[in-house]
Amino acid sequence: MVKLLAKSPVEGLVPLEINGLTLTESGLGPVTSVAPYAGQEAAASGALKALIGAEMPSPNRSTGREGARVIWTGAGQAMVVGADVDASLAQHAALTDQSDAWVTFRLQGQGVEDVLARLTPLDLNPGVFKTGHAARSQLGHMNAVFLKVAADAFEIMIFRSMARTAVHEFEIAMKAVAARAALS
């Protein structure tokens, strides 16, 4: 029998490179939301630590590293990205598969904050928003998760259905920033 083929929502739309800035998709690996039950926050964090070596992050932060990361994504909720979770965690927290709910973009290059300043009201000044910091906010009109992964790189999670709009918005902002840079 034929197998069902997986398809990325940004197939054919990325990568984009404009004036040294790149927009790529960061994989289709597992993403699981973790929401510890009442009074189980510490136990969930411990189980997570035992499982993937990273604890539950505090608000606006992430733990772990590329490959197995835990990103704070809201009140009492984090997402485990790039690693599988199991029943040892499920007894302390509601686990929900979110692997297909999001498209994760990686925007990288010098002046990445200038592009994002056109798209989000977040304060991403390097002195304020540092590597490992995470935030929930908006990209244009879309709800988004922002994660700073390197001095010049962010990962931005957007709902899958809006992937095309997100690429469109990124592209306009990237081009505008490039056109400004060409002025001086």
Binding site: S33, A35, Y37, A38, G76, Q77, A93, A94, T96, D97, Q98, S99, D100, A101, W102, F159, R160, S161
Partner: peptide, 13 residues
């Protein structure tokens, strides 16, 4: 109430 919920609209086709 000890309950947790999250949207999975986008997760499932």
């Amino acid at each position: 109430l000890n309950v947790r919920f999250i949207s999975v609209t986008e997760q499932w086709a």
